[in-house]
Write a protein that binds this DNA or RNA. Sequence first.
DNA 1: TTGTAAGCGTTATCAC
DNA 2: GTGATAACGCTTACAA
Lengths: 325, 325
Amino acid sequence: MPTIKDVALKAGVSVTTVSRVLNNRGYLSEELKKKVYSAMEQLNYRPNELARSLSRSKSNIIGLIVPHAAHPFFGELISSIEEHAYLHGYRLLLCNSHLNRQKEAEYIDMLRSSRVDGIILGSHTLEVEDYRQIHLPVVTFDRRISAEVPYICSDNYKGGELATNLLADKGCRKIAHISGHPHPDLLALKRLDAFKEIAALRGLQHIEMHTDLHGFHFPDYERLTERLLEEHPDVDGIFASSDIIAAYALKVCQARGRRVPQDIKIVGYDGVSLRDLFSPDLTTVSQPIAEMAQKAVDLIMAQVQGDAVPMENIFPVELIQGGTT
Amino acid sequence: MPTIKDVALKAGVSVTTVSRVLNNRGYLSEELKKKVYSAMEQLNYRPNELARSLSRSKSNIIGLIVPHAAHPFFGELISSIEEHAYLHGYRLLLCNSHLNRQKEAEYIDMLRSSRVDGIILGSHTLEVEDYRQIHLPVVTFDRRISAEVPYICSDNYKGGELATNLLADKGCRKIAHISGHPHPDLLALKRLDAFKEIAALRGLQHIEMHTDLHGFHFPDYERLTERLLEEHPDVDGIFASSDIIAAYALKVCQARGRRVPQDIKIVGYDGVSLRDLFSPDLTTVSQPIAEMAQKAVDLIMAQVQGDAVPMENIFPVELIQGGTT
DNA sequence: TTGTAAGCGTTATCAC
DNA sequence: GTGATAACGCTTACAA
């Protein structure tokens, strides 16, 4: 591959000049620019970003760690983050932790070695202490690591409220909350808090069910719902803490002959675009995924520039009425 | 951040020695190793991969371009590719082309600038000529670019055969094929070829429907199915060229009061794990996504090493009987 | 306005 | 076995 030297040689100027043209710095005559551009063209020259990054001590790469890239919610998050990163000249190094603790630790090390400019943490397998050692611009999703690391989340409590009130409004008498393993540090737990409080407030019987393992083992959601229907045949409302869980709940209900929404109502969470893939459409509490993704990138960039950033970035949720309530 | 120099200083050796320890090259006394490792530990040293890459002219980064990261099929593909890349010490730079031609071209430039060791192309928006200019190890999914670029695909023809024969075996008389826009270069077109041939062979009426635009505009699939049911009320079998399309078809059929599979049968393609999220479960022609992903990474690594690689990498498909047939 | 040269943090080629 | 030192390809004072 041609280097800046080759370009300089061909254009009959110094490497400094080529570099200036490349970065549009300083004063350059139009004629000179043309000469240099033409030389680049002829050589099919591409500046070596590795060398640039090394020299500038800035890689323009953002590391993104997610627990499960194939999960629709994270798929959309990845997609949106990539889009905004790209818009601002950042590239994305993707890491899929699979909620594996060792892997996540290795990934953080790797990202540091790669000299990424910042890390967006969508996965939270490690302890708070481990994250403190990062010493890089970081922003997390749905978890508060420390007072110095900004986090992004939807208004989880409000979301739980909306969902639970909706079930109550629709006449449910006995409702269940289904979720993955409730890690105490996760802000999503507030959905459950709201669920419990609103249910009590409105005089509804309520049940909590969650998977045993911290993970995304989809069949578990199915079994969980089956157990729910067996142990509590009179349950008439479900608040699932993700649209995927809601979809499994819907499937199980239908398979067991429960009519949705007549016999049992279901509300999901997230608002993934795949929610309209079901019949009936899922009712859900929607998070503004694209805006949250944009904010994540913005917060990294702001930190890179040394700007102060807000620690708490809570986004409004919206109840989307589908056919399951 | 500490550099190799700092480590050398602290360990009382030269940078050469530290580098040797780092790369396990040459003969090193145990004692020396220990000294160096301890110095690294104390300084919390992480080798700078940018500098390494520059020096070795090898970045250990693979670029992955997909058309739609939030699509379940690509989500799984990304996830699997990432996993195998990681296993072999490669990192993944993710690009989401959104089937935007200019963006895809920019991405290829960007990946070349980033000095990635190879590119896995899951998106194919450009013309063959554009791809020829890459001059890097490349492997494509589902498209034959040239005689020099290896490609990976499922046995599309066989898949189309399996699906169509299944519909025929189950007693369908009039079947439809629904797909996205059929780009002539895409190997997925063979599913349609098989569909037409088998349908003719078995004496079935058959209809082809596809979206107008090259893209993943999900609502289009819904409208397409609606049109199908209106224009051909007697259709009793659908072969959808992806599980997502199949899911939309299922939804529309159910919403229109058609019983699946009694009145109309549906077969999808891909075998994404989300297919069991529907009721009934989708019948599908499954591609071995994980194996294909692994092969993609292997083919890049082989090319990096200068090994000859097979151009044609066709993976067997498997019919998975769900409840929609 | 343009050029020289040092430096970014490694690896690799020599000597010793 | 270990250590200088020149690359790797770029940016950026500092000169001119």
